[in-house]
Design a protein around this nucleic acid. Structure first.
Lengths: 354, 354
DNA sequence: GCTAATCTCTGTATCGATACAGACTGGATC
DNA sequence: GATCCAGTCTGTATCGATACAGAGATTAGC
């Protein structure tokens, strides 16, 4: 059994409080006594104040939770998520706080329990899919949080950092529309919960539940509506998961249909890269000249020559953590919109004359 | 103020223990009472048992620490580290445990304090640089840990997962030696602590303190010793940090020297990619035909056509976490050596005839 | 020489839960 | 009818520290 504070106190012949002060408030006791105490502690093998007991008494933990509303292992395969994490890490580093990555079990009840049980002072919620339930649990616990998806029901005290999804999506779609494309497919992750890979028919974009996906698809649709192509004329493709494989599966057979789309607008770079993968797999003579766009501008996008919308990934993570760790006095400053930029590369070109 | 267990107990008119049981040991009370209690809790806004208090009483936390003996933000920029994290994440996911990423402040004392204060049940130590002090603190706390660097002083109870660094390095160096290269540079991260980027002279490989780096350099040297090139004839290059930039800085001017090396063996893919960057920056007519090898086989290596040694990154992380979470009964099973494989790609070729 | 201020250190209450031994009920067993 | 048992619930001790008010001792000021 490891010795406790009490053991050290007994050994030195002082009170527990004094030993505690030796560690946490050196100015509360004489330097000489402090040295005696620390020496005795070393001698006894006392490992320093127990972090859990300390947290309980102090009322805070010294770590923030990062919640991916999806498999945790997914987070590390998504380059955008990794850079987000890097940003959170940089902020915690400066602040002397740790980050707790909380994996969510597949079952809802277990997942709730996981969020309830996380020993943290607050959460950065990286919104992948439906996350309302998680935010509910966090609110219930009375913990502060910062989310990355815009929400209508945000309380005045709830912090947010993100981009204008709709406007950003509009910018890349307008670029594609400007190139003359009119037969266009929109590809997104989890357009509807649990929908299979491939085409999907929705009466309108408002049926898409996930706010980020909704914003991006709406932005795409806006740009085409401006050139006279309305929602019903767009091909909507669902990818069950934000992965290259899912994207490739979603576009399977797409280009062999009569009057195939001449452009695919993807809701993320990862999906767009998956479309490029699918195209690259076709025999060299049978590659339709499809324009493809992504979203995020992850490092791989540049290498692949992908036209996309850049959003500052690390900054998003950094600011999320900072909003959490140093809440701004002015609540209005708790809503941060980051800039985005259209990045045109080789993956988009003029629509073929039909 | 959030209500406590006691408040719920009072509201329902039962004892604290019973409320506790309602959450943690449902079999200890009747289903009906349990429902009444949970209802009352909902009504009062009780967020469930306080994680910190629970941890204190139970004696464990439910999360494991991941320690990078370097800047935490570095970890997310290193593709190998990211995949290691993915592996750890996958294991914790299955085990219902969280992972705490502990950033280490630059100052030693603060860094010690950070490890002392981390509320975790054990550590996966991803060894980047000197980490003995960290292991000392962990031992002192009496916590289990798994490290990824081989250590001579490992206690019988101390777990480890890694590769045979020396043999793996030998395999790629032997490949290069077999191609006829005799003027060779070895490039590694932090060969000596705080050494600047560039050439470095050491009387022998045993002066290298970091065990991983030592193993790899020794393996490189072994292979060249076998073909009659001894340590003193090898150019040793230091990169201060495992980054492409650091590598590029380390090889600056190298190829403009008289009798420049015809091959560069790097201690990691990231460094090797940095060497390729440096070569690519030279005017097209002035690119010496240098063979370059890496180590790890990160995803980017394939795209760059880099000859390297593959080691299973995610598996390393996964096994590290599993060794920690489910310690094998047989202590011998606590030392896992993973397989490696030489991967020959386009970045190596026959030595130019001089 | 007396009050005030400062510096150290102590003692008690508290953070919010869980473990464990035991008390009580009601039915089954022989 | 006594015994045993399983099923429920309670009460107390405990996990390991920190906060805070206040007690002595010392020094300072006038």
């Amino acid at each position: 059994m490891k010795p406790t504070l009490q053991a050290v106190a007994d050994a030195v012949g002082v009170s527990r409080s004094t030993v505690s002060n030796a560690y946490s408030r050196p100015d509360q006791l004489s330097a000489a006594l402090r040295e005696r105490i620390l020496d005795a502690a070393r001698q006894l093998g006392y490992p320093g104040p127990n972090p859990t007991a300390r947290s309980l008494r102090r009322g805070f933990v010294g770590s923030i939770g990062v919640l991916f509303t999806s498999q945790l292992s997914y987070a590390f395969t998504d380059p955008f998520a990794v850079r987000f994490l890097a940003g959170v890490g940089a902020a915690t580093e400066r602040h002397g706080t740790s980050m707790l990555l909380v994996p969510l079990p597949p079952a809802q009840t277990d997942a709730r329990r996981a969020v309830e049980n996380a020993a943290v002072d607050g959460f950065c919620v990286y919104c992948v899919a439906d996350e309302e339930w998680a935010l509910d649990v966090i609110r219930q616990r009375g913990l502060p949080f910062v989310s990355t998806a815009p929400r209508d029901d945000a309380g005045p005290d709830e912090r947010f950092v993100g981009i204008d999804e709709r406007a950003a999506a509009h910018s890349v779609a307008a670029h594609v529309a400007g190139l003359g494309h009119r037969r266009v497919a929109l590809l997104a992750d989890s357009v509807l919960l649990d929908a299979p890979a491939g085409p999907l028919t929705l009466s309108g974009v408002d049926q898409v539940p996930h706010p980020t996906t909704h914003g991006r698809l709406a932005g795409f649709a806006d740009a085409f509506a401006e050139v006279g192509v309305d929602w019903a004329e767009l091909t909507l493709l669902n990818a069950p998961g934000n992965s290259r494989q899912a994207a490739a599966a979603a576009v399977a057979g797409l280009f062999d249909r009569p009057a195939p789309p001449t452009a695919v607008l993807a809701g993320s770079d990862v999906l767009a890269l998956g479309v490029l993968d699918a195209l690259a797999e076709r025999p060299a003579g049978d590659r339709p000249p499809v324009s493809v766009t992504g979203f995020d501008d992850v490092p791989e996008a540049a290498a692949a020559g992908l036209t996309t919308v850049r959003q500052p990934a690390e900054e998003k993570g950094r600011i999320a953590a900072e909003l959490l760790l140093d809440p701004p006095a002015d609540p209005a400053a708790g809503h941060v919109l980051l800039p985005t930029a259209l990045v045109v590369r080789a993956s988009t070109g003029p629509a073929p004359r039909s």
